[in-house]
Nucleic acid binder design. Sequence first.
DNA 1: TACGCGTGGAA
DNA 2: TTTCCAAGCGT
Length: 293
Amino acid sequence: MPSLLADEISVWFRAEARDLPWRHPETTPWGVMVSEFMLQQTPVARVEPIWTDWMARWPMPSALAAAPRADVLRAWGKLGYPRRAIRLHDAAAAIASEYGDQVPSDVETLEALPGVGSYTARAVAAFGHGLRAAVVDTNVRRVVARAVHGAGDAGPARTRADLADVDALLPNSDAEAAVASAGLMELGAVVCTARAPRCGLCPVSARCTWVAAGRPEYTGPRKPVQGFAGTDRQVRGKLLDVLRGSPHPVPRTALDAVWSDAGQRDRCLDSLLVDGLAEQTDDGRFALPTGPA
DNA sequence: TACGCGTGGAA
DNA sequence: TTTCCAAGCGT
């Protein structure tokens, strides 16, 4: 079922898309997959330089798989959520050993890889392999909520229904659907934004049911804002920053300095060990993990 | 389903 | 200054 909405978004996208390095034609499915991991909950501007260095250093999954964990975590730098780097490392090893160093194109196969959920699997299929796959992220959910449902924002996820909504918009052909998917995301990222949508620049404002309704304010439940100051997340970040910054294992006293609450500090250090983000040496000091595995 | 998981820039 | 995030995933 052809959708004028998707067609017009595709026309707009081909003219207005940002020039992002992972969108260049020579980018491999692996490059797209790396970008999708890095972009999970992280702004484009911070991902760009890290992605560029990463792809120059590890241009295929087997190259990353062969790298020591510590190198991977240092290259990840301060992108945040460093467990993503662990999962990407593990996913690269699985692709190298089980799939001949070729990133799978099948959504179910992709979803079985570490760190690859519904969104990332479909994004790799669509943007890496040019296939028709409904890509549902926060931007797409917002665009559909407004343009199709006339709501100010998307509200809580309705996983199956969200997927069906987007699938219904996509053109039939793989190539056209992939462009439409990229366009939906781009529109949500740069025009149909959460706080100050630029409807004057929107290619589909004339068919937007939210605009037609006078842009009513969103009244549904808001997702609670995550605190950060004083959380384990902050403490883990501080501990890991010390380990990243030291070429040698550090004594426990070096970690004591980053957080005064000893109980919380110890709990966080333990959780880093459990997550594979840190290791304790035989002499009792702490460091980023060694080994490719 | 709700929650925990990093970081630093913009309003 | 404080708030609010920004292309989610795993449990």
